[in-house]
Design a protein around this nucleic acid. Structure first.
Lengths: 225, 225
DNA sequence: AGTTCTTTTACAGCATTTATACACATATTT
DNA sequence: AAATATGTGTATAAATGCTGTAAAAGAACT
């Protein structure tokens, strides 16, 4: 199930959003300020972010631009949920790279529908449940994968690696960034650890294993659809 | 640039939308009714659809569900642009599979920003994502190139070299600076390494290869546009 | 202890890159 | 205008270095 970060200083609004989203099955993490949000981002990156613009410690627009700058986070969908309601505000928010812009006061049902629409569109997560790329499905709750509708047993590292590739489907991930993300260490050219995992992933995924492409001298990517 | 179909029976609104989108560089096709839309879809599928809900011959919601059923069209982003403004209408539209929902009367700037946001997210052949020079496209995310819309396999050095030429399109780059930048070493007149790479680039780029011009005694440059 | 997962090691295979040698083109000199 | 010098294009061969693979060693479970 998709994980959503809610960055909002008004407690009532934050809890309303969180409750509503949890009610339809999403996992949520509430952040009351930018600082809290950043520290949460260190631990784990979400599948979507709801962002208020006016926050006590930092402007939401500035937070967005930072998110978009980082290699690891730049693809995360962001929805502004804010009291700034003029057309110019909306345009500014969207043009900065937000995916949607909802103005307060908003209807909770509409919020949910917009979140669902975006998550559906990302194509990554389906029916709030699976991560999908072609014939590969990833079930976050069970921590297992399916390839061509058949269950595939993955070990922890294999799962993490595949998930990272899937979330960034179509984008080349450098060996550096993969090592950083999955092994939290720097890439050492003499180590064949990553290659070994790629190999076993390819093997276990069968025909779908061909979707994992090598980019010589750079890294790997998942060739989706 | 992305192609957008506008399905809207009100001529004024339709032309306003079309004009605004063309103004920022999109190509548009106007359809005043469902029938016209379907016949256009036979010819060509767009990158995005703006859909009114109330149309003379068929309901927009019904059109959407048909679009979503077809294999070829189900991934096309759809934005409802409509006068039905209650939260329930919005929720219904989004839950049926629309990507966004804009209510009339709408601001033209907001419309454009929402279209851009969606196209950015989808990653259609949106020119903003690529480094472009004439018919040569470079996709940093995939670390690949396209010449005349066709995919071209490039090796690491070839990619780096082409990218350097493209970033400095129209500017002559000395052999020295190219060697410095791509090989991080000084130019040695007796080495034919650079020439060899230029040759293979020209070959792989086909007709576009002619854009790489030699400046005797100095270096090379990319003749763009 | 046994099992499973992860990492290391060592090497084969091979794509890419570089070196070599020469043909060709363009500029300069006689 | 011919001869020469200099720089660039091309083909082929050789070298390099990255990735794939298999098997074994080391960790982390049960």
């Amino acid at each position: 199930m998709a994980l959503i970060y809610i960055v909002e200083d008004d407690r009532t609004i934050r809890e309303t959003e969180s409750f509503a989203l949890r009610d339809v099955g999403y996992r949520t993490v509430e952040c009351s300020c930018a600082a809290e949000f950043y520290s949460r981002m260190e631990e784990q990156t979400p599948d979507l972010i709801l962002l208020d613009i006016i926050l006590p410690d930092e402007d939401g627009l500035s937070i967005l631009s930072k998110i978009r700058l980082e290699q690891d986070t730049c693809r995360i969908p962001v929805i502004f949920v804010t009291g700034r309601v003029t057309e110019l505000d909306v345009v500014k928010g969207l043009d900065m790279g937000a995916d949607d812009y909802i103005t307060k006061p908003f209807g909770v049902m509409e919020l949910i529908s917009r979140v669902k629409a975006l998550i559906r569109r990302i194509g990554v997560i389906d029916e709030n449940r699976y991560l999908i790329s072609g014939q590969i499905y990833l079930d976050d709750e069970r921590h297992t994968a399916y390839a061509n509708k058949k269950h595939v047993e993955l070990t922890y590292k294999e799962y993490e690696l595949l998930r990272y590739l899937m979330v960034n489907k179509g984008i080349v991930l450098s060996r550096d960034s993969i090592m950083e993300k999955i092994w939290s260490c720097n890439y050492d050219a003499s180590s064949r650890t990553l290659d070994a995992h790629i190999k076993s992933l390819r093997k276990k995924l069968g025909t779908e294993g061909n979707c994992i492409k090598t980019v010589r001298n750079v890294g790997y990517f998942l060739d989706g659809e």
